[in-house]
Write a protein that binds this DNA or RNA. Structure first.
Lengths: 150, 150, 150, 150
DNA sequence: TTTT
DNA sequence: TTTT
């Protein structure tokens, strides 16, 4: 009886870190920035940036490893997950992450532009970037991550 | 050039706390629970609950003060906001909140049910609880689909 | 590289019609109403109702058959689909439907209310209506926010 | 008590048509394509395209007039609206449109790419494309279209 | 009528 | 730590 849905369009802050659990399951982590601009009372434009901790599993982690790079514009659909951990002093801390269920690579890679950003040398692979969201005709349910310790 | 959107349907964990800033602006805070159930490897059903810190401003805070009570089912549309604060030891901590932009009171107040939750004695005001955004349809039959092959 | 997503919270206009394709696949169709109220220039409140043609497949059609009745409040997440058909005069017509991917039964059945809507006599089955996706939280107090400055 | 929300990421099929009502209010209309790809039983990849009739009002229509061109990738958030009209034979027909409330220009204009699409000569103005979604600090409500005949 |  |  509930819904926990997040929709983000933003820019990747760092190249993803990819880990593999002992089970072999791939996990990708990276920050995604969204920005809001408003006009303050004094007429000045103010931009605030929100950083989201994105976590992707399995197939989406693989797509991230291949195609997601710093600066890339992304659409992410997922859910909010707050987990606790113990910090170095043994105190309980909380961190909130976005578990992505759908990802779309938007626009083109920043290195593709003539404006000279130039931090990417992998231009060619963008051309073959597959959609990360595929609709199967048999409507099989998306696989869960029930057995994962998160 | 970005989107930061959250859509939640869940149940209120505590009656809202209402504060008023020096400017007179009202702010409401309350936790909202969303739950997921999945079947573990051993076949057992497992439910995990996610708690969201909801923050409402101005008019929505007023609506919350009047109509939002513990147990109430809500639709919240808003955005994610992570802010930092200093804990009692002077260490920087982060907390993630959902700033609500749209709220809909769903179903009926829990005190209305015969199931005896019974933490609410304000049943009557729920009956007249106005929608915070739109009204109920009148359930007149949808017109104009008589000749359509549905 | 695209997104086609619809999120609706509304009320069911008619009991669903259930069909079974030759392949045995179940399909449910029913109208869902969403309403908007605004204040016209003359200060009068005006409500407009939008009717959505909902289409559910397979497991969701089965849930609809069991638990969705006229008047019921639903959350539907899905996508827009416009299809063409030939009308009785052989002209091409178009109809737009919402293919539901997620459904949540909200609130309680209308027959449960004391307010006398009374178009439903199947109260008892609603009481045991399971969530079509997740469970209810247990309303244990959210833990871990005692020391946070909310 | 209802929600009618659409979220689209797609490509513009034609340059927008801009009209001005007698009241001076600007209206923009254009088609937006979203595509789904799935693998059929025979292993073949099949892509289906859905065309959405986008309608933008006032300020968003002005932004569309300046920055939206054929081929452009857009994020649109809005609501579904089905309206009736009489066709040339006096029969009642229905058409479904998406009234956009938020628009984000994604990626870069197609004419910017070195791949030579080249239907756009307005490259420079993209650089100064303002965000179409501005958050004001005073949280003023978005202006409605109450007085419009739709 | 778009795009990959 | 991103982007316009």
């Amino acid at each position: 009886m509930s819904v926990n849905k997040v929709i983000l369009v933003g820019n990747v802050g760092k190249d993803p870190e990819i880990r593999h659990l002992d089970s072999g399951v791939a996990v990708a982590n990276f920050p995604l920035a969204t920005s809001e601009t408003y006009t303050a009372k004094n007429g000045e434009k103010v931009t605030t940036t929100e950083w989201h901790n994105i976590v992707l599993w399995r197939g989406l982690a693989d797509v991230a490893e291949k195609y997601v790079t710093k600066g890339r514009q992304l659409y992410i659909e997922g859910r909010i997950r707050t987990r606790s951990y113990d910090d170095k002093d043994g105190n309980k801390r909380y961190t909130t992450e976005i578990y992505g269920d759908v990802m779309q690579l938007l626009g083109s890679a920043p290195g593709n532009q003539s404006s000279g950003g130039g931090n990417s040398s992998n231009t060619s692979q963008q051309a073959s970037a597959p959609s990360s969201q595929v609709n199967e005709p048999d409507f099989s349910e998306p696989e869960g991550d029930e057995d994962l310790p998160f």
